[in-house]
Amino acid sequence: MYLYPLWIRLWHFVNAILIMILIITGAAMQFADADHPLLTAGFAGSARLHDVAAIILTISYIAFVAGNIVTGNSKYYRISKKNLFSGTGKQLKYFLYGMFRKEKQPFPVTMDNKFNPLEKVSYNLIMYIIMPLLILSGIIMLFQDLKVIIVFGTGLFIFTDILHIILGFLVSVFLIIHVYCCTIGPKPGSLFRGLISGYQESEEQ
């Protein structure tokens, strides 16, 4: 079944590369330590790479939101109130013990229902709450000398810096869980193959 159109796959690929660069360079800056030079070598390079990747990610994020609106892709992220708690609960139970009892997926992937409720909730959280805040706090730190920003004083930078670290950490946690969940397909590599070809293997196999 053809689930992922080309633009989604391209955006997803670019986004994945950028997020990984941002996590690595961000951690290299935040945990810089002169006593452990191997862990944090190239601080200046990390700072530059982080800036460049962040700017491209912001553009990519805008393209994603615009693409969702234009193509109607946003419908896959909508979740009913009914499914918000019960659906996510069901899916969580499946991941925690249902799948070990060979139970069937509570929300099998169809052309109209690409994501299960847990995915919908986490994707909405990441893309529509965490990412905008992460980009905004990043913009404040990137353009510290802008008059509209400087008027708030150093406190704003300390606050946004800590917020940026927390949000960045949440994105890195999401990335780990997201990648791991992608191994829970018909075969461990089948969902990754789908991200390249656009086709997803049937889970009934």
Partner: peptide, 13 residues
């Protein structure tokens, strides 16, 4: 020129 002289949690450096 080593950024870590300042950008570090170790105040001594």
């Amino acid at each position: 020129r080593d950024c870590r002289k300042c950008h570090t949690g170790n105040a001594d450096t």
